[in-house]
Amino acid sequence: MVTINGESVNAAGKTVAQYIAEAGYNAERVVVERNLVILKKEELGETVLEDGDSVEILNFVGGG
C-alpha cells in the first residue's frame, strides 16, 4: 500500500502520473512530494510507486 495525502491507497506499481490522472488531478496544477522529495515534472511519468511510499499531492486552485 502507498500512503497518499495520509490515506492508504492500493497504488503500488502505478506511475505517479497514472495515479494522479486516475484520481482526477490535473498534472499541470499539482506539486508531488514522494518520500519527502519533490518530484520534477518529467519525473511524474517515470516514478513507479512502491509499497511503503509516502506521497503528498498538493493541488493548486486559481486566484491571487
Partner: peptide, 27 residues
C-alpha cells in the same frame, strides 16, 4: 493567480533553489 503557474513556480523553486517558499492557495 493561475493554478498551473502556481504549481510550476513552487515545483521549480523547490527543485532548483534552496529557498523557503511561502505560497498562496485558495482565497
Amino acid at each position: 493567480d493561475r493554478p498551473d503557474r502556481k504549481a510550476m513556480l513552487v515545483r521549480e523553486l523547490l527543485t532548483q533553489t534552496e529557498a523557503v517558499v511561502v505560497s498562496g492557495n485558495g482565497m
